[in-house]
Design a protein around this nucleic acid. Structure first.
Lengths: 211, 211
DNA sequence: CCGGTAATTCTGCAAGCGTATAATTCTGGG
DNA sequence: CCCAGAATTATACGCTTGCAGAATTACCGG
């Protein structure tokens, strides 16, 4: 009975690669590295396992591509935060901070993917480089936003001071990101952005008037 | 040739369980869940795989015990931070914050274990409970330290204010813990505790005089 | 010094893993 | 309309995994 073979439709390379990457990220978010098996990824993408090797030389290649995509999307989302931002430095920093503490940047999926990849990122130099670049970009954006705020407040800062301020605000955001993602039931929707904004003000010695 | 069988020494239950737990945590820190296989754990503990089943009903049981131990040790280390602390509220909070940002509480091993267990903790209610309890303990300690500092400064806080302050300081510590552990080469030994202390002061509106 | 027993090792198994490759089926260009 | 070639599925292999149970060995009490 030759009719038992599964029907399929041909899709473009970009589409299939994208589906596989998305499936890999979903599984990594839900169950960590253990859940992101070749067979599970293929099934989630609506495809048989063999196809993965047609688009990626190895599973590790697929995971590397997935991580790169993840970092790119995160960076783009952070940037998009400033799309409809006002012109004044305080307003821009406020958008950036609050945006970082709302979905899709702060949620269980994001931290799940982050944790799932952590060991792979530490081990593979290629992934570590991707991680560093993404981190530096975020950090640089934060630093220039803070520089503008301090300058507007008439308190220009040296490079070292600026670095310290950015590290602290960065840590505050990361910590709230972590807590809000791991224990989401402890924080209702807007408490995280509000708290992040208020305490960023405390760190920098400025006041954000408008919520 | 019956002499090929491996020599061994009998150890007490506590000793062997402890060795297995330590081995599991080491492997989890180094390579995540993928590395913490039954065979690898046994080898690291200097034992054959079968013995694990003599002391733990299943691998999951061993991992749960390992995670519980990990949380206990972390909690004990946080407490020990206050052992030789001064009496004044500012000094006590300073000890707590700086202690949390130094080894063995802040290092690559700790965050590796934390990330390695994350998905298991989210999935298994038992582990989630252990995590919550550890988190609440840390958080409670921080809250009472902050309460004492604010009271001494003549600025007593409501429960809600206190909770917000503790959440923020907690986030700052967590964020610095994360960055310092994942990118240790970016922070020399004492910058993390110093920065944490200074910025905790900024968050609470107090000054820590003595470094 | 010796037997009983619990700690430990050894061997084996079924399932799942990533990968390789052969066999099919869809689809666009003539 | 059809056929060439690429996209996709199917099958198979060797390895690793967690788990189970039988076989052995170290140690304690007499």
């Amino acid at each position: 009975m030759p009719g038992t073979r599964r029907k399929f439709r041909r899709e473009g390379e970009a589409q299939r690669q994208g589906d596989l990457i998305e499936a890999a990220l979903d599984l990594m978010a839900e169950g960590g590295p253990q859940a992101a098996t070749v067979r599970a990824i293929a099934e989630r993408a609506g495809v048989t396992p063999g196809l993965i090797r047609h688009y990626f030389r190895t599973k590790e290649d697929l995971l590397a591509a997935a991580y790169a995509h993840f970092v790119e999307v995160m960076t783009a989302n952070h940037r998009a935060t400033l799309d409809d931002a006002p012109d004044d430095p305080l307003g821009r920093l406020a958008r950036f901070v609050t945006g970082a503490l709302r979905p899709p940047l702060t949620d269980a999926r994001t931290v799940g993917i982050w944790a799932g990849f952590l060991h792979l990122v530490q081990r593979e130099p290629g992934l570590k480089q991707i991680h560093r670049t993404g981190y530096r970009t975020f950090r640089g954006e934060l630093e220039s936003l803070i520089a503008a705020v301090l300058a507007a407040a008439g308190r220009p800062a040296t490079a070292a001071e600026l670095e310290a301020e950015a590290t602290a605000v960065n840590a505050l955001i990361d910590g709230l990101w972590l807590e809000g993602s791991v224990l989401p039931e402890d924080f209702s929707d807007e408490t995280l952005p509000r708290l992040g904004l208020k305490k960023t003000g405390a760190l920098l010695g400025v006041r954000f008037d408008n919520p």
